[in-house]
Write a protein that binds this DNA or RNA. Sequence first.
RNA 1: GCGGAAUUGGUGAAGUGGUUAACACGCCGGAUUGUGGCUCCGGUAUGCAUGGGUUCGAUCCCCAUAUUUCGCC
Length: 385
Amino acid sequence: MKIKYILEHEEKNTKARLGKIETNYGTFETPMFMPVGTEATVKTLSVEELKDVKAGIILANTYHLWLRPGEDIIAKAGGLHEFMKWDGPILTDSGGFQVFSLAKPKDISEEGVKFKNHLNGDNLLLTPEKSIEIQNKLDSDIAMSFDECIGWPASYEYCKQSVERTLRWAKRGKDVFNNDRQSLFGIVQGGEYEDLRKYCTEELVKMDFDGYSIGGTSVGEDKPTMYKMVRYATKYLPQGKVRYLMGVGDPIDIVENVCRGIDIFDCVSPTRLARHGHYLTKFGKYNIKNAKNKDDFSCLDSNCDCYTCKKGYSKAYIRHLINAGETLGARLLSIHNIRYLIRLTEELREAIKNDSLLAYREQFIKDYYGDKGLPYKQNLDEIIN
RNA sequence: GCGGAAUUGGUGAAGUGGUUAACACGCCGGAUUGUGGCUCCGGUAUGCAUGGGUUCGAUCCCCAUAUUUCGCC
């Protein structure tokens, strides 16, 4: 079956929504943070650990799995769930972000995008049809349309033609889509221009996707710009379908965008930060490598319910592991960071349920930024109206 | 005991008779957003073994001392 989004409650004072999504591999509540497992693994975590941090769904990457080990191997294994032994929901990204991060403008054409396989130098062409075909074989629960993710800033003219292309690519992908057990999302592009975001959203809605996501964010723009881009899309999206904001995972961005009507987020940050020795807490982001942690035998965050903190692994020990390049360090911090972000969405759900999201947001900012205050000018108007 | 060579920051080391002593590692900070997994960006010797001397000026030249190291007896 396709996924089913059930809207349970709309927060009274903001655009936030409480809901749940039913899939073939279980139901999860939204808003939800989705850890990234590019190579069919959330880096350093076992599936038991993923369950333990209460991940409702994870993301895997079409581009990477296409190159290695190849979608046919995964299909032969019985699909991605069976291959990686994860029995929860999976969303596959289409490769659209690699258009932004790996391909050069000259490699992008109407047909698709040329890539160079870094493993053996092969020239590869990824097209909307190919991306969908791969995702159909991977058998994830949610497939993403192949879009053109552009950087920021981008001119109106470039965004406009890019939106048109993304819409044509969305249509081409939808036409060849062939997997009853899988759902397909459209991706809203349009840069920072409201009329383009609106147009793109409305055209995608006409095509009737199973859910919608917002792309082209966290590509270098400032926060207020990102929040506007989000609002330009959520304004025109149907209430009965799920909204997924791609690539966003700074804690404040999760809070702000939940307020603007987003249901799902994904981001590499908790695992990448972990590998580089950073950890998140209610009171901000910290660097475990700082010399002051050398003999600090307290845990990362005494209020945290993650395995790392409950077990009582100390800052001094984790600092040592990170400095020594031991993978357990990255793993303990990844568990902590992912749990932090998922717990953040749990708290947001609770606040939505109680219609107290604005107060929660206020307190979050106070705790996380302290005396420094918000690093940007807030616009409450956007959240409320 | 005799003779040679060496001595530059936490480490390995470049280097020059004349403003800021290269580079690398480490260390100390910071960055990281639909992940091309050890990446990127900063900072980090007021001093070149010690004491004398030559010189307008010495880390660089000379002498002595110390230490290390090699060879010979």
